[in-house]
Amino acid sequence: MRVAIFTDTFIPQVNGVAGNTGRLADALTKREIPCMVLSPDTGYEGGQGYNVYFTRRFSFPAYPECKIALPNYLKMCRQLDLFKPDLIHLVTQFSIGLCGLRYACSTSIPVISSYHTNFPQYLSYYRLAFLTPWVWKYFRWFHNKCLKNYCPSETTMKLLKENGIRNLDLCGSGVDIALFNPNKRSPAFISKIGADNKTILLYVGRLAKEKDLDMLMEAVRVLNNSFQDICLVVTGDGPLTKTLKRNAPENVIFTGYLNGEELAEAYASSDIFVFPSTTETYGNVILEAMASGLPVVAPYSGGIQENLIDKYNGLTCRPRNYGDIVAAVTMLKENDQLREALGNQARTFALKKSWDKILGDLITDYFELVKNNMRKLQ
């Protein structure tokens, strides 16, 4: 079996889709399954044992971190003809993904897709809600040409079904429990950010409107009226960075993007993970925080519902309600025993979320789809 993966984002870009796609390519390679990743040029230097085909790209003006591909379809087809894929996996629905769908349809190669990002919900944050029916119309056309459409959560699967998308299946995300580990707590990291003897709240993710960061900042302002020994560490970057830095309270620390061991240290060195987003299809960072032993405070909304269990591994809030965030953080701040218990249970919960099983099950599906296609051709 030979697999071609089409994606509009790839490592070393920092987002859940890029990271998950890199893990999938690694998993295929470890199983000695030839793999080709087609992506906009992200500067990735390769060396992992799989083929990477980059296309030209430009940065979206309103969101410089978002790279828009300008693929040369004919050149891409020549590379694919040489690679001879047995299965095509579309990770994104736009320029590169559309090329993959066109190639699959023209060659009768079985094609599957994933739904990772809730673009229709994002539109309302950018005053483009009037486009929502058209986006769903396009998504129906795109996904209904695929043999399977993998959803990261039950909530996302329900949303797609309600919008007329068929052939749905569940494929969640896992977490690297060796990397994200409470033992990575670092006094040096705490001192470096000037948070000695403080309760550290942590946010990890893109700094963009759809992450509801206005609710988090308002919650911190209210919390500052009651506590002088808290700080919020914001790890990530995005189009809102300058605005947030300009308007944030003094006890908000911006680290920019962190990766690998530095990110693991940031998680493990914090006390409470606070994530206000209501637009997640899954929320990988929720699991990373739990694996690091942190209780999670987040809205019980979207894909977050897949992992957040109220009063077991965190505390739930109503969507876009900073008062609930304040109440939850206050409860954990004032009750060390509760905070420790939820953190320990969060780690226990995350230990069951193995990447090996999730990706192993997906690859088993790959084999079945290819086998079924070969039967049809006989």
Rank of each mutant, 00 (worst) to 15 (best):
E288W: 05
L258R: 09
E154V: 14
K184D: 08
G323M: 06
E334M: 09
P120W: 14
T241R: 15
R375V: 07
P120M: 06
F273V: 05
D361V: 03
G236E: 05
A219F: 13
L287W: 01
G174D: 07
A266D: 11
N181H: 12
P71R: 10
F83L: 08
C77L: 12
L70K: 13
I5P: 01
L223Q: 12
F142S: 09
G172N: 08
M290F: 05
A188Y: 08
R127H: 15
P64D: 02
R102W: 01
A25E: 00
T199H: 10
G283Q: 07
S277M: 07
Y53Q: 12
C231P: 13
L202G: 02
N259H: 15
P249D: 09
P319V: 06
L170I: 15
L315H: 06
T117M: 04
Q345L: 09
V220L: 13
E262T: 10
L131N: 08
K161W: 06
Q121G: 10
C171Y: 04
V91D: 05
Y126A: 04
L87H: 04
C171G: 01
F254T: 13
T55L: 05
H89R: 14
Y150V: 11
T364Q: 14
V14W: 04
M374C: 01
N15L: 03
G343S: 02
G174A: 08
F6P: 11
G283A: 08
D41N: 10
V370L: 10
N72P: 02
L263C: 07
L287M: 06
R23H: 11
S108R: 15
K333M: 11
K357Y: 11
P182F: 12
F94P: 03
V297A: 11
G97H: 01
V17A: 06
F119Y: 13
F254P: 14
A208I: 12
F58R: 07
A104M: 00
K192W: 14
I165L: 12
S124P: 03
K75M: 08
P133I: 13
A27I: 04
K333H: 11
L170M: 15
A327R: 14
F130V: 15
L170V: 12
N321T: 08
S292W: 13
A266H: 13
M374L: 13
D336T: 11
V274G: 00
P295L: 05
S191Q: 12
T255G: 02
N224C: 14
C317W: 06
